[in-house]
Simulated assay, not measured.
Amino acid sequence: MLSKRLLAVLVVTLSACVVAAHPSPPPPAPPPPRILAAPEAVAVATHFARSRGLVVDYTITARADSRSRWHVELGGAGGRDHALVVLDGYTGRILQARLRGPRGELPPETPQPGTPEPGATPPPGVSPPANPPPAPPANRPAPPTTPPPPQTSPPPSTSPAPPTSPAPPTSPAPPPEGQGGAPGAGEPT
């Protein structure tokens, strides 16, 4: 009997399962950055040209170069207005722009990297910036030069207080005996 128990314990011990911890697989690599599609690049360039006062009626060309930049050429107003805008293909940021309007060539305006155009709303298909620029401070009146009065009880006045009269008694005193009052009050009957 002892040998059967010993054999059973030995079999269970030898056949014990061993659990090994396997590390989790690494997370999948992020997808490669997306390049703007041609209609998105045209929308950004059109918005930029219109925000500068040009009339844009049609797209002449829109092509991407080997550096993932979009070169968008726009026209309008019967050939009077013309824009050639170079965009970053990943962010949609304006890298360079040549604009010709009714008054001739407009001065080149290249926005600073990473700053949105002031007061401009993003064109369709382009997401707005994560943190919008703070609003300019409102014109507020200057703070008062004297501090406000403390929130306590008013100080005692310096004028002399009026004389106080004694308070009337709260209950009338009983009349002395024999001086009237209720009949039979205080007198034996």
Rank of each mutant, 00 (worst) to 15 (best):
D88G: 10
A21Q: 12
A77M: 08
P137Q: 02
A8H: 05
A8T: 10
P188S: 12
A83D: 03
P144D: 08
E187D: 01
L6E: 13
V85E: 02
L74W: 04
G180P: 01
T189A: 13
A142H: 11
R140G: 03
T61W: 05
P118E: 06
I60S: 12
P39I: 01
P25I: 00
G178N: 10
L36C: 06
S68N: 15
P154V: 02
G180N: 06
D81I: 01
A41I: 07
T115N: 10
P163D: 08
T46I: 03
M1V: 11
G92M: 05
L95H: 04
G89S: 11
V42L: 05
P137L: 07
V11K: 00
P124F: 01
A64M: 14
I94M: 10
V55R: 15
R93W: 13
A130T: 14
E177W: 07
E117P: 02
G180Q: 06
A20V: 15
P144H: 07
R103P: 00
V18I: 13
Y58W: 05
G180V: 04
V11H: 07
P148R: 13
A29R: 13
P183V: 03
V42Q: 13
L14V: 12
A97Y: 10
E187K: 10
S15K: 01
G76Q: 06
T61V: 05
